[in-house]
Design a binder for these strands. Structure first.
Length: 111
DNA sequence: CTCGTGACTCCCG
DNA sequence: TCGGGAGCCACGA
């Protein structure tokens, strides 16, 4: 893709509907770099400082929050629960219920 | 422009 | 099943 990776990532993140989540790898892959999961996290962090991206709707490939209980873990989990997302006994999110796919328009996008 | 870091992920033993 | 290493590259000083 000619489009920039960062731009793609931010675009995708902003498309995440409420009550849904995405994984770093999923975003990275959709943005053009299946190995750019780390960059996604970077963009999230940096971009969220200048933009109000729904960074809390992004989790690792295990559906868990990679953040630390002192970095924002509780905050992310808090925001997710506010949207209706539930966590398992292991603080894990069920992808079968909350995993969102960038290919599925959630706000009525009709092409 | 250059160097160092990191909210990840896949592979191997 | 668990632990360590390598690849990716954008952001900040």
């Amino acid at each position: 893709m000619s489009v920039l990776f960062t731009s793609r990532v931010k675009e995708i993140i902003q498309e995440i509907p409420e009550g849904k989540v995405l994984t770093y790898g999923r975003i990275a892959a959709c943005a053009g770099n299946a190995r750019g999961a780390r960059q996604v996290a970077r963009i999230l962090h940096t971009s969220s400082r200048k933009n109000n991206l729904p960074w809390h709707r992004v989790v690792n490939r295990h559906g868990q929050i990679s953040l630390k209980p002192s970095q924002g873990y509780e905050i992310q989990k808090q925001l997710l629960e506010e949207e209706g997302i539930a966590f398992g006994g292991d603080d894990t999110i069920d992808f079968d219920l909350f995993l969102w796919d960038p290919g599925e328009p959630a706000h009525g996008l009709n092409g």
